[in-house]
Design a protein around this nucleic acid. Sequence first.
DNA 1: ACCTGAACACCGTTCAAGT
DNA 2: ACCTGAACACCGTTCAAGT
Lengths: 232, 232
Amino acid sequence: MPTEPLSRGRIVAAAIDLIEREGADAISMRRIAAELGVGVMSLYNHVPSKDALLNGVAEAVLSEIEFTDDPDAHWADRVRTQARAFRQIASHYPRSTMLVVSRQLHSAAGLLPVERALATLRSAGFDGAEAVSMLRVFIAYIVGSLLREVGVTPAFAPAHTRTISPVGVDAALFPEVSSLASLLDECDHEEEFEFGLEMLIQAAAARAERGSGEQGSRGQASRQRGSREGTR
Amino acid sequence: MPTEPLSRGRIVAAAIDLIEREGADAISMRRIAAELGVGVMSLYNHVPSKDALLNGVAEAVLSEIEFTDDPDAHWADRVRTQARAFRQIASHYPRSTMLVVSRQLHSAAGLLPVERALATLRSAGFDGAEAVSMLRVFIAYIVGSLLREVGVTPAFAPAHTRTISPVGVDAALFPEVSSLASLLDECDHEEEFEFGLEMLIQAAAARAERGSGEQGSRGQASRQRGSREGTR
DNA sequence: ACCTGAACACCGTTCAAGT
DNA sequence: ACCTGAACACCGTTCAAGT
C-alpha cells in the first residue's frame, strides 16, 4: 500500500530528516530506503548516486532559508540581513550545515543568494571586481562561523566534556589560554557572529567611501600583497 | 623483515600520505594497513579507532606548519604572519585541510597557535573578551577561506567543468552573476585571502584606537546586536 | 606487548529479472 | 517506467588465538 509514490523530493526530505535526527554519519542509502519502506535499489530510479543525493540535500536546505531583501534599505542593512539569513542554516539544520557548506552548488539554489549579494554590493558603489572579492570575504567569514557554531561535534559530544577548562592547561606554557579559559569555553554564537559581521561591514564601508572618487585604488592595494611590510 | 616497528607516528604519516595521494574519501583502515604491509588489526595496537587516527592526522598537519612569531613586530604584522601560516595548510596539505578544519583539537598542537594569537591581540591593547572575540572572527575567516581554496573538490574534478560560465546562466534571472561570470570563475586565492585579511585588520585597528580610552564600549556595541537599525 | 585471521554487521553500486 | 533481490567489492571493529 504505497501511500505516496517515490520521488527525488521525498528521498531528499527523508535524508534531511535522518541527518537531523541521527547525524550526518548515520545516513546511508540503505537506511534512507528503510525509512521510506522501499528496497535500496528503488532509490536509484530517482537519484543517480549517494553523492548526487547529498548535493540534493545541500540544495534543499539552502533553498529553504528565508531570503527577504529590501532593495530600498541601506546596503549595510541588506548585507546584515543576508548574512543573518545564511546563519539560519545553523539553527534550522545544524547537522546538515557541514554538507551545505562543504559542497559548492551550481544550481539556482546557490545562484540566487549570490545574485542578491552582488546586487547589494554594487548598490554600495563597488565595481564588479570589488563586489566579487567582497562577497568572497563575507562568505568565507559566514562559512567559518557556521562551522564553529555547529561544532562539527561527533553526534552527541557530552557538554560536560570541558575542552579548555582551567584545569588541564599548563599555565606556564599557555598563560593567555589559561587566564582566558572561561571566555574561550563559552561562546554566544549570535553575539560572536554579529561582532565579526560589524567588523567586516565597517571595513567595507570605509572602502566604499574611499573608492567613490579614485578608480584603481583597490588594484594597487592588492598588488602589494605578500609584502612583509607593516601597516604603519 | 620488518624494516621499522609499527607506531602511531608511522600510521599517521601513512594516512596523511594516502589522503594527499588519493583524497580523503580513499582512506580506510584496511588501505592504510596495506600501505604499511601489516594486517588491519595491527593498527589497533597503536590507535584506538579510525576517528582517533583522523584526529591524529589533523594534529600532525597543524603542528607541521611554520609558526614563526616576532614579538617585537607591530601587532598587525604579527596577525598577518600568523594568518598566512594557517593558509600554508591549504597549499602543503590541500586534501587534508578539510580534516584539520572540521575537527576541533584539544591538544597542544591546537593550543599553541591560539596562545600566540591571543598574546598578539592583547599586545594590541585589547582586553581579554575583545581578544577572544577577535580571534574567533579571524579564525572563522581563515577557515572559510581555506575551505573555498581547497574547493572540497571530489577527488579530481576536471578543471574544464566550468561552473558559472557565461553560458548556462540565465542573464535575465541573474544579471549580476552573468555579467560578472568571468570574475566569479577565476580566483587568485592568495590575493583574495590578503584582501579580506586587510579588511579585518583595518577593522581591528579601528577598534584598537577607539578602545584605548573607553572601557565598556564593546560591551555596549554587542548589546545592540540583532537590531535591524542601519549604520548611518 | 604486539600481531593477526576469521567473523560480524554494515556499506554503495552493478546487474539481471521482474511488473 | 519503475521496482527489486542477489551479488560484488568493499567498510570498521570485536574476539579469540597466537608469539
